[in-house]
Design a protein around this nucleic acid. Structure first.
Lengths: 319, 319
DNA sequence: CTGTTAGCGCTTTCAT
DNA sequence: ATGAAAGCGCTAACAG
């Protein structure tokens, strides 16, 4: 009994001959270790829970890749739970994961409210925020500086001579993709001496259609913008198509830039210029951080901010 | 102890007053039931494992939605495991899920080889294939008829007068998205009296780039096709852009049609005409089937084939 | 190096 | 309606 356990757990204290016999018996009997019993006895499940805000968002898929690769490397299983962009569901999923006794938790994207913090507090396993962060930096996190990324995107536009720059934003309740990127937009305007005009800002829901709708509104303005900054790629593509469907050109009549640089950025004509966030790395680094936390190694930087960069394609032109 | 268990499990044999006291104590102590211990004692985990072949594929995201909605309805947790399109990883993930004592397993997409069958056989929980099926229909499954869907797509092309019709296929090792759709293509050609010509078939890997590469090859042919059938949307969009980048028009010079009808089909200009598979329903129906199997209800149809339909947009024209 | 003995935190009879 | 007791399948000391 105990020897079988040792064999299965690669404990060196087993005579090779015995080990072999055990393996043979395992094979013959079709024995499959019961991870549940194992988890109960050892108080470890070697699995980490990942809550993914929206499974149909390509960004998160890429982040998940990074998470997985590192998790495999350290022999952790990962279980993904989709939360459908609903706060309630996020909280529920976090609790389910905790009940399942995961050894650690990765919370991806989305707002981190007091309710989240509350749920995190009751956990007695490490948690790291991935592609998001909380207001007071109480929880370890890895992310880019969204405000700065947006700033860089808009500065690219102003450097090309654009003065009338609209923004398709996410909801301001969303601290990363929403509020921070909006702040970056405002700061860039200010830095360029362009007065902020709130008729030039529309809130979208990150979907293609909402980008197109926002753009439609801008085009119908008396004095339409010469450039648009979209908080995300998908809305930017909606905007591009709306512009083209109106008989206008990108970037001839209107330039478009966004933050994200998902795979979709190359899947549109003209190809989308965007500030890239290193999605795979965000996933990989956050998982690595989590492994350290789970092993109780102490970490210097519990808040890591990864660099972003602008990738120039074809959707931005001069004025 | 036992009473707490009854309260937590909604067992009616508890005096309301006691129940109330227990709830208060739970609240006060911040007690969180241990799902692992629960699972061990009850031999049920109320969770089903879902293996998802490729998390970055939009099709599977939509199927997952359907799965989730029904799972929630029946109070099952679901844990998603990505397999990265690798057979080895699929097998590994299936075994991990089984070790974790899931109450049922949903295997999504991808080929079902003998090795898979082998792994399934050792499971003593129900399994259903979702958006795929095995050659001998040994395992319950829900899917569309891929061969028929492809046939319909190609017939649409021939009905518009096209005679020189190329195909961008998936690998023939993939029974659903690959082989079956290729067979449908051949059958439609035959039904239309068009000889099969294998210079008009290229194998892609389902990615945008591979669609573009295949199209590049077709365009450079001495006698280029007037229409292209792509096994999936993403490759079709790659093809459309390749055509446009070559200075040709869709559908003026070359028509494009595909099978899938993911959200992306509307996110390209011209919008993509495609045979739609009911992704959400495939997920929902397969999860529903699994719940029946898990409750040991006996089911009449262990192999369900859902209907598909063609949705006309702008990428197909007459000759 | 291997076997024995306690639990891990719950659910489930079985009494009461 | 509640408590007592056994045990789910494993791991983790502890002997030997």
């Amino acid at each position: 009994m105990a020897t079988v356990s040792r064999v299965v757990n690669n404990n060196p204290n087993v005579k090779p001959a015995t080990r072999k016999k055990v393996y043979e018996a395992i094979e013959r009997l079709g024995y499959r270790p019961n991870a549940v019993a194992r988890g109960l006895a050892s108080k470890k499940t070697t699995t980490v829970g990942v809550v993914i805000p929206d499974i149909s968002n390509a960004i998160f898929a890429e982040v998940a890749r990074g998470i997985e690769d590192i998790a495999n490397m350290y022999h952790y299983n990962i279980i993904l739970c989709n939360a459908d962009k609903k706060k309630d569901k996020e909280i529920r999923v976090i609790n389910t994961l905790l009940e399942k006794q995961v050894d650690g938790l990765l919370f991806m994207g989305g707002a981190v409210t007091d309710e989240h913090l509350q749920a995190f507090k009751t956990a007695n396993v490490p948690i790291v925020l991935c592609a998001t962060s909380d207001d007071h930096n109480q929880i370890p996190s890895v992310d880019i500086n969204h405000e700065e990324a947006a700033y860089d995107a808009v500065m690219k536009l102003t450097s090309q001579g654009h003065k009338r720059i609209a923004m398709i934003s996410g909801t301001l309740q969303d601290p990363s993709n929403g509020y921070a990127r909006f702040q970056g937009y405002k700061r860039a305007l200010e830095a360029s001496g362009i007065p902020y005009d709130d008729t030039l800002v529309r809130i979208g829901n990150y979907r293609y259609e909402s980008g197109a709708e926002a753009m439609k509104y801008f085009i119908e303005l008396d004095e339409r913008p010469t450039a648009v900054f979209s908080a995300t790629d998908e809305m930017a593509i909606g905007a591009i198509h709306c512009i083209q469907d109106s008989g206008l050109q990108v970037p001839g009549d209107i330039s478009v830039i966004s933050v994200d640089n998902s795979r979709m950025a190359s899947m549109v004509r003209p190809q989308l210029t965007a500030v890239a966030q290193p999605m795979y790395d965000i996933g990989a680094v956050s998982m690595r951080l989590l492994t350290k936390l789970m092993k109780k190694e102490n970490v210097e930087h519990a808040k890591v901010v990864l660099p972003h960069e602008i990738v120039i394609r074809q959707s931005v032109g001069g004025i």
